[in-house]
Design a binder for these strands. Structure first.
Lengths: 221, 221
DNA sequence: GTTTGAATTAGGGATATCCCTAAGGGAAAC
DNA sequence: GTTTCCCTTAGGGATATCCCTAATTCAAAC
């Protein structure tokens, strides 16, 4: 299954960390969820790998998922993070073109439902939304400097977490760097600069208060 | 319609360069093409603008189209080029999120057909293919160096033009730079280096023979 | 409370790419 | 044939980001 890729990310993903908790559910619920069972993944567990046959459709119940691709020498680009409620993993053909891993502990609903026309009309807006997101991210990575990229990332994360001027980051600086096309050091420096300027407050490296939203928004406009 | 964007690209697009040639067709053909009329655009003519209401669906009949987005200060990221046969311009909601312009003279079939379930199942694989393309391009822009990006671009163009070890580029170095997240000088230097190494032969700046495909493939692997 | 290990931040030199200017080349217009 | 204009290529200094090393912080394990 890995024949197409040079370096399978076994050093990243923990294939033993998968747990099917449907067994602990009462029978009636198992019945209901035959076609979309809930599976819990431990942090850094692999959900699927590039080259694997497509399994139809995944929805995040809780936690955060990273979608990524690798170059032969190990360079990684995370193309998307997915949080609760979001769908991912549907492909045009019968094989996955990307890797998907749990960032933190997360629950995934896996639907095996066949792709009929009804499902297509449901999936199309989701796919189109993902397309717009990816293309907007191209602008960030292709044309914005480090500070602007990190600002855009923080704003995006804040809005997806309810716009409460507060962000809980599930992912490490390495993940952020690989998402933004930067190095971990550059990401860290951007955070430090934002803190020094009073744009953000770091309760810990991953717990962030957004003090000056406007400053960040102007930066990444 | 432009209220959302800071600098409408009037300096790029020529809005007067649009021609509806259906008038010159015999009546029967006009009848047949009521729902998907062919429109010819002059080089650099605007096909649609960010913020405009969605028109359903576009298909390239001949020529090349660029899809792009702008930052407030004018920085531009081309997210995709589209050539004969390819679809573009369908959006999740009722407004365009990007600009579309003719690169060279090109004919576009514009379908006004309403979005029913049958169309959704046709569109979904196209949208998913576009999504995969965009996400793969993220890896190129986010993690590959200038030479690798240009090599990937040449390989991609060659394969889309029939894999004949020959490429006819419709777009300028500026367009290529804005597609690859580089400057025009860096793109030009990459071409020069490939020529010096014997990977390519430049009959003119836009007419290219691929001499050593493998070298280019290894570069961007 | 201490130890351990991973993640983050900091420091500083190296460098790929950017930025600015200008020369070269090729197609269209005159 | 000449001119004009735009696109492309070239040169070289400037700089943001990378790369490598090391200090610091933090959380988990003992």
């Amino acid at each position: 299954m890995y024949s197409q890729i040079a370096f399978p990310p076994s050093h990243y993903a923990d294939r033993t960390a998968r747990t099917d908790i449907s067994k602990s559910f009462p029978p009636s619920i198992i019945e209901d969820t035959q076609l979309h069972q809930l599976v819990v993944f431990a942090p850094n567990a692999e959900i699927y790998a590039q080259g694997e046959p497509t399994s139809s459709l995944y929805q995040v119940e809780f936690g955060t998922v990273r979608i990524y691709r690798l170059l032969a020498d190990g360079r990684r680009q995370i193309t998307a993070f997915h949080v609760a409620g979001e769908f991912f993993g549907f492909e045009a053909d019968d094989a996955h073109h990307f890797f998907a891993e749990a960032v933190d502990r997360c629950g995934i609903r896996i639907c095996q439902r066949p792709l009929d026309k009804g499902l297509a009309s449901e999936l199309l807006p989701i796919a189109l939304d993902a397309l717009v997101r990816a293309q907007k991210h191209l602008l960030v990575i292709g044309r914005q400097c480090a500070g602007e990229r990190v600002a855009a990332f923080l704003i995006d994360m804040m809005e997806r977490q309810g716009d409460m001027r507060h962000v809980e980051l599930a992912m490490s600086r390495t993940d952020i760097a690989d998402y933004l096309g930067l190095t971990i050091e550059t990401v860290s420096r951007a955070f430090t600069k934002f803190r020094e300027r009073g744009y953000i407050r770091l309760k810990s490296a991953r717990t962030i208060d957004i003090v000056d939203v406007d400053a960040l928004r102007i930066l990444c406009a």
